[in-house]
Amino acid sequence: MTVLAARGLSKWYGQVMAVSKVSFEVGPGVTGLLGPNGAGKSTLMKLVTGQLHPSQGSLTLWGEPVWNNYPLFHRIGFCPEQDAFYERMTGAEFLAALLALHGFPEAEAGRRADASLGEVHLGEARDKRIGAYSKGMRQRLKLAQAFAHDPELLVLDEPLGGMDPVARRETIRMVRDWGKQGRCVIVSSHILHEVEAMTPRILLMHNGQVLAEGDVHEIRALIDKHPHHIFIRCSAPRRLAEALVGYPDVVSVSFHPDGHAVTVESQKPDAFYERLPDLILTNEIELEEITSPDDNLQAVFHYLVK
């Protein structure tokens, strides 16, 4: 069963093309929307949730257009990316007010608000003002308002941002459960392993276009073919470079202009990260920083668009 269908969908803001001639279908279960910042994920999600009107093409949910189709919003829950709230309200007041707008009587709205707050472990903070919530609590509250009215379609824009590891794990579990229950969940992220933990089914976006859709393992295979950059700042970059160049997966090692760091290109990042601790210990190197300047996805996008 198709829940969401986009046909030649485009959206532009003035001269800027945010989504360009996109066609795809999404059914029940969890679908990951992957892409780097600026890929058009948020615009696509706003189109799906009827916040924006398509400039060209069509977008339907259960066969109906979304824009100004108010009854459809009983069936949709949206967790926005932006950290915006009515700061003076308590968590319980916020949810109860939004549930009242869904037509729930006061008592039922209160009951549902409490249940949803409990689901995201905010039960004890129900009477606390949102302005006093931590970033992680605010993120969980955004999630709670998305599912409190029991929607069939959940659209979650970067839902794990700002959450601590425990909340992340819990949210990932919830998303997977919703998918198993037969709901349609569309979840966006620019971090591959986050999406991978929720679903193998993905839509890959870049520059407003859907570059690929399908199984995440195919994306993984592409990543393994593409050299992965790792930036390492340490006490002895030359010694580290000497130790690294012998490995067949290391394509290149370059020194940072300040002389205290190296950038390594590896074709097998998993193997590289596994061996790195031993290398550092053996060569008595002090590690200060390790980052990946182009995360896995960015590398894949470059690879796919070349």
Binding site: T49, G50, Q51, N68, Y70, P71, L72, F73, H74, I76, F78, P80, Q82, A84, F85, Y86, L98, L101, H102, G103, Q145
Partner: peptide, 14 residues
């Protein structure tokens, strides 16, 4: 303030 999203995504006419 970006709070308009919460209101516009409810099943009530704008």
């Amino acid at each position: 303030g970006k709070t308009i999203t919460y209101l516009f995504l409810r099943p009530i006419p704008k």
